[in-house]
Computed example of a mutant assay.
Amino acid sequence: MQINRSKRLGKTLEEIEEGDSLSLTESIEDSQLLLYLGLTNDANPLYIQHDYAQDTEYQRPIVPSVMLMGIITSAISKHLPGPGSHVVNFSVNFIEPVYHYETLTFEFEVIKVDKMKDVVTISVEAVNVEDSRVLDAVVMVQPPAKKVSDELE
Rank of each mutant, 00 (worst) to 15 (best):
V129G: 04
E18S: 06
Y36F: 06
A53D: 09
N89H: 14
D131P: 00
V129M: 13
S31G: 07
V113G: 06
E102N: 12
P143L: 10
E17Y: 07
P45L: 05
V63I: 15
P81G: 03
P83R: 14
E125K: 15
T40Y: 02
L152Q: 14
V134S: 02
L135M: 12
P83N: 11
I76H: 00
L33K: 03
M140P: 03
H50P: 10
L13H: 13
S85G: 00
H79S: 09
S91N: 14
L9A: 00
D136L: 14
V127A: 04
L35N: 14
M116N: 15
P64N: 10
P64W: 05
T25L: 02
E57D: 08
L46D: 07
K146L: 15
E102F: 03
V98R: 10
K78R: 10
H50G: 08
F94G: 10
K112G: 09
S27P: 00
Q2I: 12
E107I: 01
A53H: 06
G82M: 09
K146C: 08
K115T: 11
M67Q: 06
E102V: 00
S123T: 13
V134H: 04
H86A: 12
K115N: 13
V110N: 11
I111F: 01
H79T: 04
E151P: 00
Q54V: 01
T25F: 07
I76K: 07
R133C: 12
L80T: 00
Q2W: 05
S6I: 09
D118M: 14
R60V: 04
Y52R: 00
A53T: 03
D150W: 13
I3A: 14
K115V: 07
L33H: 02
N4C: 08
V119R: 05
L104I: 01
V141A: 06
Q32R: 00
M140N: 14
H100D: 02
S21T: 04
V127F: 03
E57N: 11
V120A: 15
F108I: 10
E57A: 14
Q54A: 13
I72N: 05
D55T: 13
F94H: 15
E15F: 13
T103N: 12
E26T: 02
S31K: 04
V98S: 12
Y99V: 03
V110D: 02
V124T: 11
G10N: 06
N4Q: 10
N128G: 07
L13E: 10
I111N: 08
S21E: 09
G38Y: 01
V98P: 11
G82D: 05
A53C: 06
T103F: 07
E29R: 07
T56G: 12
V98Q: 07
N44L: 11
N93C: 08
V138T: 15
S77H: 09
E109D: 10
I3S: 14
A137D: 11
V87I: 12
H100S: 01
D42G: 04
G70N: 09
L104V: 01
M67R: 01
L152N: 09
Q2C: 11
E125Q: 12
Q142V: 15
H86G: 02
H86V: 15
G84S: 08
K147E: 11
G38R: 05
F108C: 00
N41P: 03
V141K: 05
P81A: 02
D136R: 13
N128F: 02
S74F: 09
L9Y: 05
E18T: 12
I122G: 10
E26I: 09
M116W: 07
V124Q: 09
N89F: 08
I48R: 13
V98K: 03
V141W: 04
I16T: 10
I111V: 04
